[in-house]
């Protein structure tokens, strides 16, 4: 079976949707030369009318995309740096997201915001290493964080076809993941549907984005001691609560690993919702970035504030000790 990289899966999704639907076009910084390597080859294939380099005016081109979507096109806006989402949070949340309600349903805003390389890229320091998916889930913007090449393809396709704005976070830690993929089987992945990556009976680990791979590795390591189920929500908003509740109802234990700052992070929401619906055998646990973390530059410091395998192993073991 051929190998597909996560990055190439994104490229393939863009190309397939641009071929399928003339109203899809790309907007962003340095996308013609494919500085992020996600839009590679698309200028040649689709021309400069559909692969549009913008000036460094993130706020204007984000709202330009809103206007183009209101007028019937389907823009895909690429952001080279996750922290740029802070700069355009107003344009996405206050305009693109609010227009359907504020206008009483007069319009649709089908924009996809694609963030290739979200989270730490190691050595890119404080202003290039955020992973702000929780903010978008909080305000109710459709938010997807694919972990695998097939999901990257399928969720990006679904995002582009969706009638509401969608933010697609492609974690830096997953961009180089490769998987054996049957290209003919690549298909849209439904928004709002999680996936059990590995079945287990003792504890459910919810892992977001690239951390799915860490969770799977830890589950393997613990195989002799515990049966760990790994649940990948894939979409953080709207979340597949029924899918997760089904899993935790079987295992009775919950650990969440989430590359967000702890306070008001998505891990807190996941735990709160599960304990509202399921009587657990042991207190739940979460592994996150610290409260208010800013990623420091030095590699050892960068790693120190990111959630990792060692912490996850400890959290799982603590949870298993009780009950």
């Amino acid at each position: 079976m051929p190998r597909l990289s996560y990055r190439k899966a994104l490229t393939r999704a863009l190309a397939d949707e641009m071929t399928r639907d003339e109203s899809v076009f790309l907007l962003g910084e340095d996308i013609r030369v494919a500085a992020s390597n996600v839009t590679a080859g698309l200028l040649k294939k689709f021309g400069p009318e559909r692969v549009i380099d913008t000036p460094l005016s993130e706020q204007a081109f984000t709202s330009f995309a809103t206007g183009a979507a209101l007028a019937g096109l389907r823009p895909v806006v690429e952001f080279q740096i996750p922290s740029l989402l802070f700069l355009v949070f107003e344009q996405i949340v206050n305009h693109a997201h609010k227009f359907p309600l504020m206008t009483g349903g007069q319009c649709e805003v089908p924009v996809t915001y694609l963030v290739p390389g979200s989270g730490s890229r190691t050595g890119w320091a404080g202003q290039h290493s955020d992973h702000p998916y929780g903010l978008f889930a909080h305000v109710g913007v459709t938010t997807v964080v694919p972990a695998t090449p097939a999901d990257a393809y399928g969720l990006l396709v679904s995002a582009i076809r969706h009638v509401d704005p969608v933010v697609v976070f492609a974690p830096a830690g997953a961009m180089d993941v490769r998987a054996d993929v049957d290209f003919a089987a690549l298909a849209p992945v439904p928004i709002g549907k999680g996936r059990v990556h590995r079945a287990g009976t003792d504890v459910t680990v919810v892992a977001v984005g690239h951390l799915v791979h860490d969770a799977l590795a830890v589950a393997d390591e613990l195989a002799g001691q515990a049966s760990v189920e790994v649940f990948d929500p894939r979409t953080l908003y709207p979340f597949d609560w029924d899918g997760l509740v089904e899993s935790v109802s079987r295992t009775g234990r919950l650990v969440v690993i989430d590359d967000s700052n702890r306070s008001c992070g998505i891990a807190g929401e996941i735990i709160a919702t599960v304990v509202e619906r399921v009587r657990l055998l042991a207190p739940p646990a979460r592994v996150t970035r610290p409260d208010g973390a800013v990623l420091p530059f030095a590699p050892a410091l960068d790693r120190a504030v990111q959630p990792g395998r060692e912490q996850l192993r400890t959290a799982i073991q603590l949870t298993l000790k009780e009950g």
Partner: peptide, 28 residues
Amino acid sequence: ADFGIGVLGANAIVGAAGAILTGAVWAR
């Protein structure tokens, strides 16, 4: 707002609508 007659909304954030309208006119 009245999209049927081309009013893409009053917008309550000062200075925000110009880029939205630019995108809409460009797209149409």
